[in-house]
């Protein structure tokens, strides 16, 4: 009898997983390295769950494995939106250990970091193909957004018909140019923010609820 009960439970779990409409949407935080993805993921997770997602760093490719924070409940306008956040490694077309040597890193560590970063990009691309229901695309508003990586990723996201929110991060820095990002992707709404300082997070949460709720 126990066996039958177990069987019935697992079948209902599977069907629940397949058909549940209120399953939390899995939102991938994507973008080039050092755009502030983890800072944003931590900001969202701390604001709504009290936990962090992962360590932040000025050295590129600090996040080399996708990290998930499940069941983040965001309250907006009297209703609650539950999402799973996936903080992904920064996507790039080239990884060179030499760029890490400037950050006081030994060569061995730099080479290892470079290899892990490359594996991380492969993982991020795989998640994009298989496992996300929506994308928060984070860009550093002090950098030129017209890059091969950004164009390609936004193109993939559009071809998948995934809802996407473009965030122009680092508005606290002097060289920030939000308009340049808005111009680069006019087909999407661009939200300015400073994930580090927590500036304009209210609008970010409103848009998250609107796009992914």
């Amino acid at each position: 009898m126990g066996l039958l009960t177990n069987l019935r439970d697992s079948i209902s779990r599977v069907t629940d997983g397949l058909f549940a409409a209120d399953e939390p949407k899995r939102i991938g935080i994507y973008g080039p390295p050092n755009a502030g993805k983890t800072t944003l993921a931590n900001r969202i997770a701390r604001d709504w769950t009290g936990d962090a997602v992962g360590p932040e760093s000025h050295i590129p490719h600090e996040t080399r494995r996708a990290r998930r924070k499940e069941g983040v409940e965001i309250e907006r306008n009297g209703r609650t939106v539950t999402i799973d956040i996936v903080d992904t490694p920064g996507v790039t077309t080239k990884v060179d250990y030499k760029e890490f040597l400037d950050h006081d890193m030994e060569k061995d560590d730099a080479v290892r970091r470079s290899r892990e970063a490359t594996e991380g990009v492969a993982e991020a691309m795989h998640w994009l193909r298989e496992d996300v229901d929506g994308v928060i695309y984070v860009l550093d508003s002090t950098s030129d957004p017209f890059t091969q990586v950004n164009t390609m990723l936004i193109g993939i996201i559009e071809s998948q018909d995934l809802p996407a929110l473009i965030l122009a991060n680092k508005t606290d820095l002097p060289g920030s140019d939000v308009q340049q990002i808005a111009n680069a992707f006019p087909q999407h709404e661009t939200i300015p923010l400073s994930a580090l300082e927590g500036d304009n997070m209210d609008e970010v949460y409103t848009k998250i609820a609107e796009y992914f709720g």
């Binding site: 996507v91 790039t92 077309t93 080239k94 990884v95 060179d96 250990y97 030499k98 060569k107 730099a110 080479v111 470079s114 290899r115 490359t118 594996e119 990009v121 492969a122 993982e123 691309m125 795989h126 994009l128 193909r129 990586v149 390609m152 990723l153 993939i156």
Partner: peptide, 30 residues
């Protein structure tokens, strides 16, 4: 080819290929 090892610690990635593959690389060795 989706990942080229130019030399140890230096890689070039073909994002479209990485995206298009059904399987994905989970570990590289030099």
């Amino acid at each position: 080819e989706s990942i080229r090892i130019v030399s140890p610690g230096q890689y070039e990635l073909n994002l479209m290929e990485l995206y298009d593959r059904q399987e994905y690389i989970i570990s590289l060795q030099e």
